[in-house]
Simulated assay, not measured.
Amino acid sequence: MNNHLLALGDFSQETLRSLIDRAIALKAERKRGVRHQVLAGRTICLLFEKPSTRTRVSFEAAMYGLGGQVIFMSAKESQLGRGEPLKDTARVLSRYVDAIVVRTFGQHVVEELARYATVPVINALTDLYHPCQVLSDLMTVLEMKKTLDGVKCVWIGDGNNMANAWIEAASIFGFPLTLACPAGFGPDETILAKARARSPLPIVVLRDPAEAIRGAEAVSVDVWASMGQEAEQEQRLGLFRDYQLDAALLAKAGREAIVLHCLPAHRGEEVTDEVLEGPQSVIFEQAENKMHIHAAILEHFILKGKAA
């Protein structure tokens, strides 16, 4: 039984859809003033080597909203920053908390923690995957389009951790996905090949964003230089210039397309202020949905771990 969330590819469509459906239900209940205490007496540890605003606050708000408690630790506040073996950290924290939520650089970090932990380990971002974020993105698409079946999703920009997670999602849910990435900045080839073998519909990687965006119903963008790539910022500005989502490029998708951005956004770089503030942008609904999907994830994995 898999009681860790490290990558979307580890799960069936049924399991992931149940998380999204639960998040939608929790969101509706919250708006009606319904509050749950299903995780009362439970504690999670947020172990973050990378800083965050939305991911940290949404996980904390989700856990508190379910009656639980949160311990936050940055790398400098933990033994990770002093070279303690991950297997030791995993086994110690497992005796203190009910789940470990990790935001780090290498995917190997969450994998090794999961190997030794006896509580759920949840990937809140690595350089390879960002599964929780893409689940909240899919939740937003489902809310706006009422289905995921056949919805053409488009990714424009760097083939980063978000692109990799979108590729996995497309292969699991079976929706068509097109990515437009500059040469040399495409998604992980191993992830792409595995997803294509699994997917019933095409997963296409193009160079031309104008070609990629035609017929899109959901368009996703992200910053051109992620955390840890700051030294490449100036170089990437030149290489990615033609991949900016502006009004002219968005018009090729049509008026019904929605715009997604996981934030923070560099307005005037990967996307214009006009697009982000325009009627097709759903970025703040998307940001709110992080909290609801995180609540569904915490509820599912912590209670599932108890049952196990």
Rank of each mutant, 00 (worst) to 15 (best):
residue 100 I to C: 00
residue 84 E to K: 08
residue 154 V to L: 07
residue 47 L to S: 05
residue 80 L to T: 12
residue 45 C to N: 11
residue 103 R to T: 05
residue 63 M to G: 00
residue 99 A to H: 01
residue 136 S to T: 14
residue 98 D to M: 00
residue 116 Y to R: 10
residue 121 V to Q: 04
residue 111 E to Q: 13
residue 76 K to M: 11
residue 86 L to K: 03
residue 42 R to E: 10
residue 30 R to C: 10
residue 51 P to T: 15
residue 38 V to I: 14
residue 28 A to M: 08
residue 70 V to R: 03
residue 72 F to M: 11
residue 72 F to G: 09
residue 127 D to Q: 12
residue 55 T to M: 05
residue 154 V to A: 03
residue 53 T to R: 09
residue 92 V to Y: 04
residue 52 S to Q: 09
residue 96 Y to F: 15
residue 128 L to H: 11
residue 129 Y to K: 10
residue 61 A to S: 15
residue 59 F to W: 06
residue 144 M to Q: 15
residue 41 G to A: 09
residue 87 K to L: 14
residue 47 L to Q: 04
residue 131 P to M: 02
residue 102 V to N: 00
residue 82 R to I: 05
residue 67 G to H: 01
residue 71 I to G: 01
residue 49 E to Q: 15
residue 32 R to W: 00
residue 43 T to M: 13
residue 145 K to R: 14
residue 108 H to M: 10
residue 104 T to F: 05
residue 130 H to T: 11
residue 125 L to Q: 07
residue 52 S to D: 09
residue 120 P to S: 10
residue 133 Q to T: 03
residue 135 L to C: 11
residue 30 R to K: 14
residue 92 V to R: 02
residue 63 M to T: 06
residue 89 T to I: 03
residue 55 T to N: 03
residue 95 R to T: 12
residue 69 Q to I: 02
residue 88 D to N: 15
residue 28 A to N: 13
residue 119 V to I: 13
residue 57 V to H: 09
residue 43 T to W: 03
residue 152 K to D: 05
residue 151 V to G: 00
residue 72 F to K: 04
residue 88 D to Q: 12
residue 51 P to Y: 00
residue 76 K to C: 09
residue 42 R to Y: 12
residue 111 E to T: 12
residue 92 V to K: 05
residue 139 M to A: 12
residue 34 V to W: 10
residue 52 S to M: 03
residue 117 A to G: 11
residue 70 V to F: 01
residue 154 V to R: 02
residue 40 A to T: 14
